[in-house]
């Protein structure tokens, strides 16, 4: 299966039988898959929205009823969704947004990049909110993390973003999928299902009074603290005795894994921390490693957006270097090996 198809099928099996999107490369396979499958499923609907602005607001309406819904796009389209994502977070609605990142800024190109890290992790939309951000690195994870995204969105009533890139979307790998991934969360206490045998209820994000607004934001942040305590996910690869720890996510982590193996073959003790959640960020593991490793090398397909978060976690204890490529160029294992080798 292709990565984009794996995520589509996983979403359907997670009950997200409502899809709203607007065509943009390199994620069109998702819309094509959904437009084929959803009309055949009872209660399912595929809607080609007029813009990504409309698509995210359709999601806002759909998830307000307590149902699961999906939208996917690529970088410029995610920019258009920023306002809607802020509203989803502000109204505490569970939604899943997938960004198959491409090159930017501007129209950029359709090649894979990881230059939307800031947009995903630091905000993108206005106001005091956080997105949970998941980063798959295989076709299997395109499916698994989509399922996880729905479950985290439900549990925390917060939008979750899955960030991948064109490589992962197009890549073919075998995938195992369960028959169904039902929601474990009951939305009956807040969903808009009609005021039958109960008073009417409202979903909104407006609080005119300063103290009321502040209390509400503090409540959101208490939730984000809980997410940071419970949901950090990462993979450590050969870090136990490592002198050099490479930090990467998504497609780049696959290249880094090869580089680590090559370095080990040359007798250089390298290891990797692969992020699965970009937010919450795995601060503690990096802080812990900083006690004993010699340096970190952050590898990204961007000009270095995650490097700042690694620096914050390491807090000056060890050097944090960066190696990245841009424009759709994927770093090669040889390039990364050279970056590490020249520092040991």
């Amino acid at each position: 299966m292709k990565g984009n198809e794996a995520l589509s099928e996983a979403a359907i099996r997670a009950g997200a039988t409502l899809y709203f999107g607007y065509p943009i490369t390199p994620q069109n396979e998702v819309a094509e898959y959904m437009s084929r499958r959803l009309p055949t499923i009872p209660g399912g609907a595929y809607i080609q929205a007029e813009t990504e602005v409309a698509a995210i607001n359709m999601v806002y309406g759909a998830v307000a009823t307590g149902r699961r819904a999906l939208t996917t796009s690529s970088s410029p389209g995610i920019s258009l969704m920023a306002e809607g994502i802020s509203y989803l977070a502000g109204s505490e609605l569970p939604a899943v947004v997938v960004n198959i990142m491409r090159g930017g800024p501007g129209l950029g190109n359709i090649n894979p990049e990881q230059a939307d890290y800031f947009q995903a992790v630091k905000g993108g939309g206005h106001g005091s909110y956080r997105l949970i951000v998941l980063a798959p690195s295989s076709v299997q994870e395109m499916a698994d993390l989509t399922v996880l995204a729905f479950s985290l969105a439900d549990r925390y009533r917060n939008p979750v973003m899955v960030v991948a890139d064109g490589n992962l979307g197009q890549m073919m790998e075998p995938v195992e999928l369960a028959e169904r991934y039902p929601s474990e969360v009951d939305h009956a206490s807040w969903a808009l299902t009609g005021a039958k045998e109960r008073p009417g209820r409202t979903i909104t994000s407006i609080y005119l009074d300063a103290d009321e607004m502040e209390a509400y934001i503090r409540r959101l942040y208490a939730k984000y603290d809980e997410v940071e305590r419970n949901e950090v996910r990462f993979e450590e690869y050969l870090t136990e005795d490592a002198d050099a720890v490479l930090v990467a996510y998504g497609i780049v982590s696959r290249v880094v894994r090869s580089a680590v193996e090559e370095l080990r073959a040359r007798g250089i003790k390298a290891g990797m921390v692969r992020l699965i959640t970009l937010w919450p960020f795995p601060k503690a593991v990096l802080k812990g490693l900083a006690e004993r490793v010699r340096f970190f090398l952050v590898c990204e397909m961007s000009m270095g957006q995650m490097v700042e978060d690694v620096q914050l976690a390491v807090n000056g204890q060890r050097p944090v270097y960066f190696y990245g490529r841009s424009g759709g160029n994927v770093p090669t294992p040889a390039e990364i090996v050279a970056e590490v080798a020249k520092r040991v």
């Binding site: 929205a49 359709m58 005021a195 979903i203 909104t204």
Partner: peptide, 14 residues
């Protein structure tokens, strides 16, 4: 009734 507040102009999409 049940109610939802929408972003500026987006009510028909919601």
């Amino acid at each position: 009734t049940d109610n939802i507040q929408a972003a500026h102009g987006r009510a028909p999409a919601v």
